[in-house]
């Protein structure tokens, strides 16, 4: 019977093991939001595809406008047929279902806000969650005497040539007096990247 005593131990161990596996499976909760694409593909897509859309192109039946400003701003004035979803609340249950509904209807969602910088955050989050039909409206919304003024803007346009400005200022100054100061732009340094050699590891059986 000694053999059977041992068996008991094995059985208890295996039952415990299975129990742990079962508890793990049962307590498992699927997170409500999952990324659909990884960061590498996201980066590739946002740098190759154009997600910006101008004011003229917004008038399209396939497009749904989503205003990501807060409710107060939205009430003050908004584009026609826009839906108000405040940016920090886009992952709420009801809002997610709204997004899902649009996704199923194959409509393109156009996000807009006070300016394009404001919609980067909601756009990036939604895009990584797998909402493919997303666009960003490159528009500015401002108020003039309580009237909403919407205008196109160029995203990330360089507004001024700083080097030219600096040179200009030097010239202007030089005209007024003789001594010409030497101005050198601080040098740009590219730091060499050092790879770390992996340390050999001790180990083994």
């Amino acid at each position: 019977m000694k053999e059977l005593e041992k068996t008991k131990r094995i059985s208890i161990a295996s039952v415990l093991f299975i129990l742990i596996v079962l508890i793990g499976l049962l307590t498992y909760k699927r997170p409500p939001h999952m990324y659909a694409i990884n960061s590498k593909t996201t980066l590739e897509n946002i740098t190759t595809d154009n997600f910006l859309i101008s004011l003229e192109d917004i008038e399209n039946k396939e497009y749904v406008l989503i205003d990501t400003r807060n409710e107060f701003e939205f009430q003050k004035g908004h584009l026609n047929n826009a839906v108000n979803i405040y940016a920090p609340e886009i992952l709420n249950e009801e809002n997610t279902s709204i997004f899902n509904k649009f996704q199923e209807e194959n409509k393109t969602m156009v996000l807009y806000s006070t300016n394009p910088n404001e919609i980067v955050a909601p756009f990036m989050v939604l895009y990584q969650l797998g909402f493919k039909n997303l666009k960003m409206a490159a528009i500015n919304n401002s108020y003039n005497q309580n009237k909403l003024i919407t205008e196109n803007i160029d995203v990330e346009k360089s507004e001024a040539d700083i080097n030219a400005f600096i040179n200009e200022s030097i010239k202007k100054a030089a005209k007024q007096s003789k001594p010409k100061p030497i101005v050198k732009a601080p040098p740009k340094k590219v730091i060499p990247i050092k790879k770390k050699k992996k340390m050999p590891v001790e180990g083994g059986c």
Binding site: F17, V21, G24, L25, Y28, P31, K198, P200, V201, G203
Partner: peptide, 24 residues
């Protein structure tokens, strides 16, 4: 046991397999 256990835990999100040490 370790292999199957780790794969299950990785699948369920209890363990991040990429952070584990792999012997060179």
């Amino acid at each position: 046991v370790a292999l199957i256990g780790i794969l299950y835990m990785d699948y369920l999100g209890y363990l991040n397999m990429e952070q584990l040490y792999i012997h060179p």
